[in-house]
Design a protein around this nucleic acid. Sequence first.
DNA 1: TTGTAAGCGTTATCAG
DNA 2: CTGATAACGCTTACAA
Lengths: 347, 347
Amino acid sequence: MPEGTRRPRRGATTIEEVARAAGVSRQTVSNALNAPQRVRPDTLERVTAAIRELGYQPDQSARSLRSGARRTIGYLAPVDDPFDPNPLMAGFLEALVDAAGAQGQRVLLFRPGQGGGRDAGPGAADPRAAIDELVAARQVDGLVLADVLHDDPRIGHVARVGVPFVTFGRTGPGEPQHWVDIANDAAMAAVVRHLAALGHRRIGYVGRAGELPWMAARRAGFLAEAGRLGLSAVEAVRPDVAAVRELLRGPERPTAFAAASDLLALDVYEAVRAEGLVVGPAGVAVTGFHDTPLCRHLHPALTSVRLPLRAIAAALVGRLLDQVRGEAPPAAGLELPAELVVRASSG
Amino acid sequence: MPEGTRRPRRGATTIEEVARAAGVSRQTVSNALNAPQRVRPDTLERVTAAIRELGYQPDQSARSLRSGARRTIGYLAPVDDPFDPNPLMAGFLEALVDAAGAQGQRVLLFRPGQGGGRDAGPGAADPRAAIDELVAARQVDGLVLADVLHDDPRIGHVARVGVPFVTFGRTGPGEPQHWVDIANDAAMAAVVRHLAALGHRRIGYVGRAGELPWMAARRAGFLAEAGRLGLSAVEAVRPDVAAVRELLRGPERPTAFAAASDLLALDVYEAVRAEGLVVGPAGVAVTGFHDTPLCRHLHPALTSVRLPLRAIAAALVGRLLDQVRGEAPPAAGLELPAELVVRASSG
DNA sequence: TTGTAAGCGTTATCAG
DNA sequence: CTGATAACGCTTACAA
């Protein structure tokens, strides 16, 4: 690699130049930025003007090196196939970047399997290795983890490493409770109450019982509330069109369906139509979960549960920065309510 | 703000400690990392062992400050409502992070309206201000911009600022040609040929003619290829269900529809069914664009155009780093083909 | 091939 | 309230 030319420093206004322009020492400029109350008002004004005029911004690398604060939060992106992206990711990331920005923090994205060098050995896709790399290089002040699984190995790892972290999704009882999550069960219970209020007595559920905690919580919330209200709850054996059609042909034909996601609600739509029935309050009512753009493109438009992504992101960033500042980490997680958005498919 | 305690340096192995452990000067450790060929093999081995043993990673801030290289790429996220996220974003971002990681680069996400401080004045949502901030703070080596519009003000701005950049989406003739894009028109032409090969002679188009370049290109590709093949091309006056239904009731009833996106294809499905027709090669064939997860959840499954997101990301990162290294920027953009994925809705 | 000296831009300490 | 001095951890000349 011919490494001849030294990269010309782009524009690169330094604190020194600002100091000269304002007729003060560079220390005063630093104070004006980091502790304005310690600078005489008129001096502050003069410095501020010079800063604005020269378009000065402190070099973040220098600042980080000196102060230790990276002003950057790492977000470990889920390892999805690009063609089957986590529907959460886009909307949540935007909210996270905004929430971080409001606190003067940037968001650094990273994924497992990012060997900084050429070592693509085994375990290259281990999220723990990716975390270690980021932390060891001191590129972030803290981490945000999403899609927390039961006994997620990442949690114990970050706790052991000692890096500040928060999670979108609750952690296990033996683990640090630095989590924020939506009330999946309560939201699904609200769905059940909504359907019950419409007069439905037999409600079908479409979703997986499996190991994904948020899915398990939705199912539990459904079953609990249906039981409480004395409704007849019927579960599709599999979350697909064929299984739903079978329910619709059975003796206990549900008059409404709650789906664990918007995409699954789409399967319900297909099944209902295939059985010659119609989706809607007059026919078979249907609800989804996530409130993706899909909901408004369906006919009838799909009732769904909207996640409070901005509130979640704000809470996560707040709790993370508390830890970064050395304050006591929260003793308990934070559960935020999700909002039921009623549309034509059920109202 | 009581700023008493100095933050304890996390673990923070330094190059000095590695040097001591390996019995060499810290200079040699640096060489082992940045210019291994200049270190004697046995010394290199000893140093490498010490590095591994201590879990040493160079402090990125110190490295950046000294060398000028940030090893970080900025991605300007589109300003979407979190509840109507750009479907591109998730899958593309993952591909971008991986492509960057393969080159030893991280990805820093940012959005307009991120005042680092408390100045939420007007124009806070101006992407140019956000770019300026990031560049002035020297947090990135270069920028990736997506969703380039006609006469996009961001392009001229980054060119003027002089920061290396590339775009996903082509730039105007008077602007730098640092772009990578998919062949929207060619992909849509392939859709038309596919439908023609199935025997369709009257094909409907559902999409907006508007100012979004990628949408305009798809429409143009459709019209051009239909004309070339002597097909009758009919456009829906608006991209919605009602407009499609009107076409289906009209004298020139199309036997197939090409939609400019998967969500629009969903509207076509609805319209076809509302008219008592059936989607599929035997009834009305339908195609989408993007190949979102939605395609496989539709019945019949939706034929769509898959974007080569990983290839795009790799090309973008490659071209960006070329610029960062001071090599001549590419004189022309790069157009990549998209792949037609045929499913039951048209085959 | 390896070690020495300097400095990247900033902030913290301590005199004035 | 302001100004000099040192140090954060690293890389790049240059000398050994």
